[in-house]
Design a protein around this nucleic acid. Structure first.
Length: 116
DNA sequence: AGTCTGACACCCG
DNA sequence: ACGGGTGCCAGAC
């Protein structure tokens, strides 16, 4: 049943707490495939509308939703707002404050610590 | 500081 | 075996 990458991404998405977010690149990283951010996006693209998973809690590294193309932009933003996520005028949210990392994340998949 | 562009990486059908 | 795709990053404007 294990499909590998896809299943791991979905498992991660399922764990994102309400009011928090993860990025595509982050999902790929934690799924064990750094650089496969676009594939993470493709995985999510498949389940829009027919999934119990909190797909709307996944945004891009710029802190903005990437679903406008597919017509789910407003929906996603609305769902996040309902959870307390604030978006500024340019449609961005504060990733530093809202991005969620699993507590059991291996150290090498942790966010780069500021060295200064 | 903000926005746009192009090269790049990579799983899945 | 091959190309697409909800991205990412670095560099230019």
């Amino acid at each position: 049943m294990e499909r590998g990458f896809q299943e791991r991404v979905l498992a991660l998405v399922a764990r994102i707490p309400q009011g928090r977010v993860m990025t595509y690149g982050q999902l790929a990283l934690l799924a064990g495939t750094p650089g496969a951010a676009r594939q993470a996006g493709q995985v999510l693209n498949g389940l829009l509308g027919h999934t119990p998973l909190p797909w709307h809690r996944v945004i891009n590294a710029q802190g903005r939703v990437s679903t406008h193309k597919i017509g789910f932009g407003d929906v996603q933003e609305g769902l996040l707002r309902a959870e307390g996520v604030a978006f500024d005028d340019s449609g961005r949210c504060d990733l530093d404050a809202l991005q969620w990392w699993p507590d059991d994340a291996p150290e090498r998949t942790l966010p780069p610590a500021p060295l200064l």
